[in-house]
Design a binder for these strands. Structure first.
Lengths: 187, 187
DNA sequence: ACCTGAACACCGTTCAAGT
DNA sequence: ACCTGAACACCGTTCAAGT
């Protein structure tokens, strides 16, 4: 007993993310992750329950990358900053990012990101219920845009068009949340 | 020669969609599709190039389900009708639907749906460039919401909350496109 | 022309066995 | 306690062979 562990769950997830980033989701096999760690595939099962658990861990790892917005900034910039950080994460991890839209949003990191957005929306003057609804729609729109871009759905548009699209999305969100905004957006 | 075909590409796609609807994307194997057609897996390869081609065909089949809006209706209702049809398709095919966000939007059916939206936006008074941008953002938001719902990301919210969320999304889209809407939404 | 049998390389996963 | 070897059931895909 007491044989020292060669690998750990964080090490497994880091290796898995690297494999997915470099070679895509199809190449993300237990054997590929193990090989990168210098270990056999069966050794991973002590640190992740199965491959689905590994994918869940990757989603959680991605969420960790979304930095908490500086609380000193006004709500509008906190919102835009988080959205831009999410899009940047999608660009770094195009293979894994789309999984964010396919997995439940109830994990610790997911709650942390959501609470940051909710705080900003309440500071903008929305009550709890409207803030919760706006958070769901904003998150979905931002995740959807970033996932589309990562998956190559907009590959036929040049980068500057996509940048302008995203800027426009942020502008719409800002306008809809703004206390001075149109009535329909806040209903 | 001249042995009559037992199966066809449409038959393969119909069987594949049924398997995915009933048992999920993981159960969508070449063998399962073949079994449903009373044929061996190898027979499918005469009608689809490989499994990826089969998935592309499913995406195209899903797009076919989005009905062309009645051109007699005002633009606002055409837009809302298309969005609701897309959401309904996601509810019917929750396993396959998320693939729409992962595959390029350049196929024939994808263009047909897009052109319907573009027509509505131009009728709302947007010029070509703004209509194209609005189409990309609206499509992404609607697909993102429907895909999230289909994948179970909102399962912890009851149906009526999700219905209200979607209605709110439609309202925001309508307000942003409306000629009388706020300035930021149309920039 | 269309489908099948047999085969190949590869998966995820288990379990008893080694250290 | 942690990792491995061997094994199992399953995948997608090929190719020559049947009809």
């Amino acid at each position: 007993m007491g044989r020292p562990a060669q690998i750990s769950r964080p090490a497994v997830l880091t290796a898995a993310l690297a494999v997915a980033d470099e070679r895509g989701l199809d190449a993300l096999t237990m054997q590929a992750v193990a090989a990168r760690l210098g270990v056999t595939a069966m050794a991973l099962y002590r640190h992740v329950r199965d491959k689905d658990d590994l994918l869940d861990g990757l989603v959680e790892a991605l969420l960790t990358e979304f930095p908490p917005p500086d609380p000193g900034l006004p709500w509008r910039e906190r919102l835009a900053g988080t959205a831009r950080a999410i899009r940047a994460s999608a660009a770094r991890h195009p293979a894994v990012f789309p999984l964010l839209l396919r997995r439940p949003a109830g994990t610790e990191q997911a709650r942390r990101v959501r609470d940051g957005v909710l705080d900003a929306l309440r500071e903008a003057g929305l009550n709890d219920e409207r803030a919760a609804r706006a958070e769901r729609l904003i998150s979905t729109a931002v995740l959807g845009y970033a996932a589309s871009e990562a998956a190559g759905r907009f590959d036929h548009h040049p980068q500057d068009v996509r940048d302008a699209d995203f800027a426009h999305l942020l502008a719409v969100i800002g306008a809809c949340v703004d206390p001075e905004g149109s009535r329909s957006c806040r209903g």
